[in-house]
Nucleic acid binder design. Structure first.
Lengths: 151, 151
DNA sequence: TGACATTGTTAGTTAGGCTAACTAAATTTA
DNA sequence: TAAATTTAGTTAGCCTAACTAACAATGTCA
C-alpha cells in the first residue's frame, strides 16, 4: 500500500466504514420495505413517484437518471404507476420521441398521505434520539447525499 | 399531536430525516449493486456469507433472523451458496431438525478477497472526506446500527 | 435524402422478497 | 405411551425490480 503514513489508518477505517454503511443500508431498506408495501405502492415506484411529486414533471430518461436505473426499468415502473393512475404521460410538443411524465392529483395525494406513514417507524425511532444524535445523523445524511452523485 | 412544544419541531425534523435516510439508502444500494456483482456473488448472498465468515457457524433460522429475511428466503440463498461450495451444511448432533451452516474455505477466501473490492469505490470516496466528516459518518452509522434491531 | 443518434418500449433473464403448504423432528400433554 | 402441538426447514408459486439485447419511432445533419 503506497500511502502517507497518516492515511493508512484512514484507508482501513474508510473500508471498514464502507462495509458498515453498506450493511446498514441493506438492513434499513429491508425494514422499510414493509412500510412502503402498506402504502399500496412498492418502494421503487414510491421513490420514482416522489421525484415527480416534489420535483415536477420530467421525461422518462431524466427520471431514470435521477433514480439511477436503466430506461427499461423506469419504463416498467412508470407503466405500473400509470396503470394505477398515479402518473400521466404527456407528449412533448417539440419532440415526438420523448414522454413527459407528471404526477396526477391522485399521485400527489398518495405521496402526501404516505409521507408520514412510509417512514413512521423510523421517524419515531429518530425522534427518540437525543438532539445531538439526531444532528449527527442529519449531518451524515447530508454528507452521503453529497457523495452519492459522484459514486 | 400530544408533545412538548420543543419537540414539535423534532417531529417534523425526524420525518424529514427519515425520508432522506430512506432515499439515501435506496440510492447507495443501487450504486453498490454493481460492485457486488463483480465479485461473482449477489448482494444478498454476499451479505449472508459474510455473517457466517465473520460471525462463525450458525443455524439457518439464526442466519435468517440476522439478515432479517424469512426462513424460505434464507433457505434459497443458502442453497445457492452451497451449490457454489461457499457454504457447507452440517447436521446438528442434538437436534435433527436444525441445519448448521458454516462458510467453507472457499467462502472465507471469497469474502476476504472481496472485502476490499466490494466497497472500493465508496471507501475511496470516504477516504477523501475530511477526518471530521468521516468521524461524523462513523458516529451516524453506529447510531443506525443501534437503531436497526428495534425497527 | 440517407445515415446516424436519441428516446422509449418489448422480450427475456436473473435475483430476491413474500406467503402457503408441506415434511420431519422434538416437545407437551392427556 | 400415544396423540397433539410446536418448531425448523424446504418446496412451490407469486410478485417486484434489476439487467441486456433487440426493436420502433423520431430527430438531426452532412
Amino acid at each position: 500500500m503506497k500511502r502517507k503514513k497518516s492515511s493508512a489508518a484512514a484507508g482501513e477505517e474508510s473500508q471498514e466504514l464502507a462495509l458498515r454503511l453498506h450493511a446498514a443500508a441493506i438492513h434499513l431498506l429491508r425494514r422499510l420495505r414493509q412500510e412502503d408495501a402498506a402504502l399500496g405502492v412498492s418502494p421503487a415506484r414510491a421513490s420514482a413517484l416522489s421525484v415527480l411529486a416534489f420535483g415536477g414533471a420530467r421525461t422518462l430518461g431524466e427520471l431514470a437518471a435521477a433514480e439511477q436505473v436503466t430506461a427499461p426499468t423506469m419504463s416498467r415502473l412508470v407503466a405500473a404507476l400509470e396503470a394505477d393512475l398515479l402518473v400521466a404521460r404527456e407528449p412533448d410538443p417539440a419532440d415526438g420521441r420523448v414522454v413527459r411524465l407528471r404526477a396526477t392529483a391522485a399521485g400527489l395525494r398518495l405521496i402526501e398521505r404516505g409521507r408520514a406513514r412510509r417512514t413512521a417507524r423510523l421517524a419515531a425511532r429518530l425522534e427518540a434520539l437525543a438532539p445531538a444524535e439526531r444532528a449527527a445523523l442529519e449531518r451524515a445524511v447530508a454528507l452521503l447525499e453529497g457523495l452519492l452523485p459522484e459514486l
